[in-house]
Design a protein around this nucleic acid. Structure first.
Lengths: 233, 233
DNA sequence: CCAAAAGTGTTCGCAATACACCCATGT
DNA sequence: ACATGGGTGTATTGCGAACACTTTTGG
């Protein structure tokens, strides 16, 4: 609407998600410059000509937070007029899933980088952060995509280390879906889908309250649940 | 790689799908100008600043083919370098589903507009058309999206007129999934998902070979199959 | 011994499948 | 009459929900 000549610009943004403390967290940066200087936002930035979109997203993520990811999945494009107050901008949102809250380090045009519980980022209830641009909507769409994708097992292993117990895998579902699942039936469901997970030799040590040590598993060659697991409710 | 300074341009493309003769068809235009002049391609074009992406897609569709649609769904963004030989371009692909082969009329920078069976557009077998840009990939992704979405009933009604018989609805599934479905079980499945379809008063007339006239239905208030229908195979 | 978590067994009910059968219409 | 497609009935089967029960650890 101002300062813009002709065509929209192209940016990429990254919704990096990870689990901690039984809660989904999203990686945010505090903006150093206008617009929305001081506000929290998704890491992202302009795409260079000749650059693949997912490469641009990975580059921006690394530049602004120091976090490196092996792969990014495209989520959607957001291009509503007015989403950027300065010029017409289309952003291609990407999704990254990490097994832990990989140490963020602010750099580039970000004043800070931090993992934030998605409930807080989206301001359910009182403490709303008021993310820059339409980033709250993008984060919401990303979480919805992960929740839906878990039905056939997608994203589950991205949120876990290479080997994990079935309790940890179940914890992913319970954290994202916000429902408790029956451990016995979950176990049968997961093990019944051949090629989804395979047992490893070693077992995890018991927790502080005891309990039988659990076997460790890793993702199988066909990391999809078939038939899918339906979300209760 | 030539003529481009700095940032990629933004375009929209439309995959318009409709059923005819028990086959999915896609609406293509023959390009009048370079690049790919003379080749068949998806309708689409540049996005103006201040324009919503879906609006731009609807505008380009109407300008190039004369076809108007009530709504477009975003599919994905395609931005690989080299997908446009002249300059770096990111396109946001959109999906439209129509109840019939709405009369196409070439205009604007399209030399012709035509509905083409997707099997032909994608060149399975011999007669490959060689769509411009990466449009073959985009069409393939769109068809895959529709096939997957049918599991919970999405897209089914977009490919049908406001009222339809259950045989017509089943025909949508059989055409897209390329499998025969048991009419009896299909009927029970569809009617058992409350709010998916509702019966109307009138019945269709029998076909040329006779048969009991079928009741007409329309989409219900909750046009989703729950639980979803699984694709055989 | 007790609590807690892993892992197994069992029952019940629903939903998908396969297929037989009846109904209404055109030729 | 017969072919054709709409529509109903029914036996079987597999899976998911619920929950009791056993096993193995820490305190």
């Amino acid at each position: 609407v101002t300062g813009d000549r002709g065509r929209p610009a192209v940016t990429v943004d990254v919704v990096a998600l990870a689990l901690a403390d039984r809660q989904l967290h999203v990686l945010l940066v505090q903006r150093r410059y206008e617009p929305f200087a001081g506000s929290w936002a998704l890491p992202g930035g302009f795409v260079d000509a000749g650059e693949r979109l997912d490469e641009a997203a990975a580059r921006e993520l690394e530049e602004e937070t120091g976090v490196e990811v092996p792969a990014l999945e495209q989520l959607a494009a957001y291009g509503d007029p007015g989403r950027d107050p300065r010029r017409s901008t289309v952003t291609i949102a990407h999704l990254a899933t990490l097994p832990e809250l990989a140490g963020p380090a602010a750099a580039d045009d970000a004043a800070a980088a931090e993992w934030v519980p998605v409930t807080r980022a989206l301001g359910k209830g009182r403490a709303r952060m008021g993310l820059a641009f339409d980033h709250a909507r993008i984060v919401g769409d990303a979480v919805a995509r992960v929740a839906a994708g878990l039905e056939d097992g997608r994203y589950a292993f991205g949120l876990l280390p290479p080997t994990f117990t079935l309790a940890a895998l179940r914890g992913v579902y319970e954290a994202v879906w916000q429902v408790p699942l029956d451990p016995a039936n979950f176990r049968r469901k997961v093990l019944g889908s051949r090629g989804f997970v395979v047992a490893t030799a070693d077992v995890a040590s018991s927790g502080p309250d005891g309990g039988k040590p659990a076997r460790r598993y890793r993702a199988g060659r066909t990391p999809r649940l078939d038939p899918p697991m339906r979300r209760p409710g």
